[in-house]
C-alpha cells in the first residue's frame, strides 16, 4: 500500500481502532459510505473491520488505513474520482 504513503495526506486519527474511525466519520461528516473490507480506492484494497465507513468532505475522502506494525490511521486525501465511484455505488 505504498502508493497512499506517497500521496499528500492528513492524519486525522492515529493509533486508533476501527470502531473509533467509524464513530468519527459518522459524527463529523454528513456524507459517508459503507464499504466492505477489500474495497479498492487509490489503487489499494482497504483493510478493515466491517462496516468500513468512508467520509466525504468537499473533494476529500476520509478513510481508515491499516499498517501491520503501526495500527490504524484515519486519513484525509483529495480524491475526486474516488468520491465519484462512492456516489455511483
Amino acid at each position: 500500500m505504498g502508493c497512499i504513503e506517497q500521496m499528500k495526506y492528513e492524519v486525522i486519527l492515529k493509533n486508533t481502532s476501527f470502531k473509533e474511525c467509524r464513530e468519527y466519520v459518522k459524527k463529523n461528516f454528513k456524507e459517508f459510505y459503507q464499504v466492505k473490507p477489500g474495497y479498492r480506492m487509490f489503487d489499494v484494497y482497504l483493510i478493515g473491520v466491517p462496516p468500513v465507513l468512508i467520509g466525504v468532505d468537499g473533494d476529500d475522502v476520509v478513510f481508515p488505513y491499516t499498517k501491520p506494525c503501526y495500527g490504524t490511521f484515519l486519513l484525509r486525501i483529495r480524491g475526486e474520482a474516488e468520491i465519484e465511484s462512492l456516489r455511483k455505488g
Binding site: 481502532s17 476501527f18 466492505k36 473490507p37 483493510i47 478493515g48 491499516t66 501491520p68 490504524t72
Partner: peptide
C-alpha cells in the same frame, strides 16, 4: 497480535 491483526482477520473473512 494487535489491532491491525484483527483488521486483517476480518478482511480475510470477507474476501
Amino acid at each position: 497480535y494487535n489491532d491491525a491483526g484483527i483488521s486483517y482477520l476480518f478482511t480475510l473473512s470477507s474476501m
